[in-house]
Simulated assay, not measured.
Amino acid sequence: MHSALLRRIPCGFTRQSESAASLAAEGCRIASGKRANRLGWIDSIRGFTLMQMIVYHGLWDLVHLHGVEIAWFTGNGGFLWQQSICWTFILLSGFCWSYGSHPLRRGLTVFTAGAIVSLATVVAAPDQVILCGVLTLISSCMLIMIPLDRLMRRLPPALGILLCGALFLFTRTISSGRMGFGLITLPPKLYSGLLSAYLGFPPPAFYSTDYFPLLPWMFLFFMGYFFSRCLPRRSLPSDAFSGSAVLRFLGRNSLPVYLAHQPLLYAAFSLICD
């Protein structure tokens, strides 16, 4: 049952993807005296990846909604591009967690945005509904990190990266009913409802056009967290390698840009192609 399920639930970005570009909602900051300075190079990386996501979604619209044939996009090239985008955003969100302030408020804000996107797809586009999407994943990880931070700080960062990387790979295929590189078959009773889907065990009837459960993706977020601990804050000046002003602007305003770009793309292509 799970092989068919995987074909219906892409673990990546589609037109309706809840891009993690919005997930460092207040950006990555470091303390400098009494004021907090943004890390310009983080904003630039986020902005560059956000631009890729917009282009990817535009091509997705053309291929899947307007019948344009782009062979490489529907093959391995498009899949690898898609994965590089979502991996970058999730890692960046984990990296920025320890530099941001008010983690509870930020986590709840992003979780609310994810709930709004899910509700909007249920009402306006039920055939492309988003449940347990990236916004829900990252906001959940942001909230989980609040009680885990003190415990995880006891781990050496390098060990944390290796451990989380191994756990990510070990649980990578959990939504298909297996883990441990496909060697361990999980009991079907684990795949029993929406809560199980949120955790990483989607039942046969579950459907989402964009699906990022806690397992395995939270381990990628945790890897980003440990990467940030490998770099002392004093070695991260906010103006180093800050990139272009356009990229920094996109990175700083990733949430509103994300929320606006999909309806704008949809409307533009509907006018041009129909």
Rank of each mutant, 00 (worst) to 15 (best):
C164Y: 01
T121R: 03
S192I: 03
F181K: 07
I90D: 05
L155P: 04
H64T: 06
P187A: 05
L259T: 05
S101I: 12
R7M: 05
L151F: 14
F221E: 12
Y258E: 06
V122N: 04
G47M: 00
W87K: 00
V55F: 02
I45Q: 02
L183S: 04
W97H: 11
P256F: 11
L135F: 10
G160H: 03
K34H: 10
P216K: 04
I184V: 14
I130C: 03
V129F: 13
L220Q: 14
W72K: 05
L265C: 09
G160W: 01
G193L: 11
I146W: 07
Y99A: 09
Q16V: 09
L183M: 07
F181S: 06
R29H: 02
T74Q: 03
G182R: 13
G107T: 11
A158G: 10
M142N: 14
L104V: 15
P232I: 02
G133F: 08
F226W: 08
P156I: 07
L131T: 04
A25V: 10
I42R: 01
A245C: 06
S175A: 13
W60S: 12
L236N: 04
C273W: 09
L190A: 04
S238E: 05
F89N: 08
M218L: 15
L80W: 02
L236D: 02
V122D: 07
L137K: 00
G47Y: 00
S192Q: 12
F241L: 15
L59R: 06
Y258C: 03
V117K: 01
I42Q: 10
H261S: 08
L163T: 14
T173A: 08
A24T: 07
G114P: 00
G58P: 15
F226K: 12
F222I: 15
V63E: 01
L163F: 14
A36I: 05
L131N: 00
G58D: 11
Y56R: 03
W87R: 05
S19C: 07
L135M: 15
I138E: 11
L65S: 10
L231G: 04
Y198C: 01
F241I: 14
